[in-house]
Amino acid sequence: MNKGSIWYIGLFMTAVLVQVLFMDAIQFSGLVNPYFYVIFILLLPLYVPRYLQLLLGFMLGISIDVFSNTPGIHASATVFLAFLRPYIISTNVDEQDRGKIPSVMNMGTGWFMKYSAVLILLHHIFLFYIEMFTFSDFFNTLLRSVLSALFTFVLIVVSQFLIFRK
């Protein structure tokens, strides 16, 4: 096992623990539920085989599900996120950058913000509608997902400066 995979195992466990112990405890009028754990998928190296991304996404989601009694809900959303990620990357990245970790330091703040904003928003919208399992209350659910995505986005961008300190 090389240094990189150990770092990712650490990131996986940290992401799950931060989510279930801190993020799930945030109570703000029922509107904002940040899902910070997606940072694990966002920070996977650009070159990872796609089947592995999907499997890792599934493992991450099902771990969150076990802690929050929601079998399948987070798993389906993270698999969706892992499936979409390569398409977002390929439209946004130069050839010589493939193979790097998509962090702020490697890719630049502007690139990272665009990349994470799109993926977080899509993930949250998918997740909130799957959780409701209905399109009634359409705008309420949309509002909750957009507000929560905004919150997650800020947390993930800020966390970049804590994780990748020089």
Partner: peptide
């Protein structure tokens, strides 16, 4: 994987008492 997750969600009532899938594990 999506079908599998959706099955878990839809058949929730059959799975909710499967201990390894909830927070009493």
């Amino acid at each position: 994987l999506e079908m599998f997750s959706l099955t878990l969600i839809v058949r929730y009532n059959n799975f909710q008492r499967v201990s390894f899938l909830n927070s009493s594990n």
